[in-house]
């Protein structure tokens, strides 16, 4: 868990340079992240661990282009995220990135199938329904296609979220505390499923967790404390 894990090859899929995030409050600026540098190669897996408030989720958001840094740069496939507008970043996410959130973030009005179809439909794939149904079958929800999130348990919702994340065969998967809202047994099942799908699709995995055991299943780990990499 030192900087030695960071790849130095020129083919890095993700590259982060002197990244920082500062938030201004009434009592003065708060530095959430300071001077983060890292490189991640295609197919690698990286766990980001740290205590609550150490900046894990903020770093994940910045890596995925969901938020903008106050300082520094993030490159994905040599594209500098800070120079892109929100639409360009959205397109990049659609093409390269999948997400799994702690709170699942499924659209409540859509069925399980429609939720999974959505990323494919956004890239105008004609076979969206077939591909989505197959992936839901793969995660064990073949018989729950028409159920809305409200009709599914927490574990089932997270499996729908996994299917939605992998349905576009993303090059990178960002997972933010994917078991945080689940009990231990269900959480373990979800993690197994996540790593299986990751292996099948050879996705680059960036995982935020505070579970050290889970972090150990990744090839690399970085630890954050007070917004700085240890």
């Amino acid at each position: 868990m030192t900087r030695s894990h960071i790849s130095e090859t020129p083919t890095s899929l993700i590259e982060v340079r002197q990244l920082g995030k500062t938030v201004n409050t009434a009592t003065g600026p708060i530095h959430i992240l300071t001077d983060i540098n890292l490189r991640i190669n295609a197919g690698e897996s990286l766990a980001i661990i740290g205590t609550s408030g150490s900046g894990k989720s903020t770093l994940l958001g910045l890596l995925a282009g969901l938020d903008l840094p106050s300082q520094g740069e993030v490159f994905i496939q040599q594209h500098a995220l800070t120079t892109m507008d929100e639409d360009a970043r959205a397109e990049l996410r659609n093409q390269l990135i999948g997400f799994v959130f702690q709170a699942f973030q499924l659209l409540p009005g859509l069925t399980a199938l429609e939720n999974v179809m959505l990323p494919l439909e956004l890239s105008h794939r004609a076979d969206a329904e077939v591909v989505a149904a197959a992936l839901l079958q793969r995660v064990g929800l073949g018989n729950r296609l028409t159920h809305t999130p409200k009709q599914l348990s927490g574990g089932e919702q997270q499996r729908v979220a996994l299917a939605r994340a992998f349905v576009t065969q993303p090059r990178i998967l960002f997972a933010d505390e994917p078991t945080g809202n689940l009990d231990r047994k269900t959480g373990a099942h979800i993690i197994d499923l996540l790593f299986e799908l990751n292996a099948e699709q050879q996705t680059t995995l960036i995982l935020v967790t505070h579970d050290v055991q889970l972090a150990q299943r990744c090839q690399h780990t970085i630890t954050l404390e007070g917004g700085c990499m240890l």
Partner: peptide, 15 residues
């Protein structure tokens, strides 16, 4: 909330 999820999944502002 819905729009934020859609943007995360890659929807552009025009859509």
């Amino acid at each position: 909330h819905k729009s934020a999820i859609m943007r995360t999944l890659g929807a552009n502002s025009r859509l």
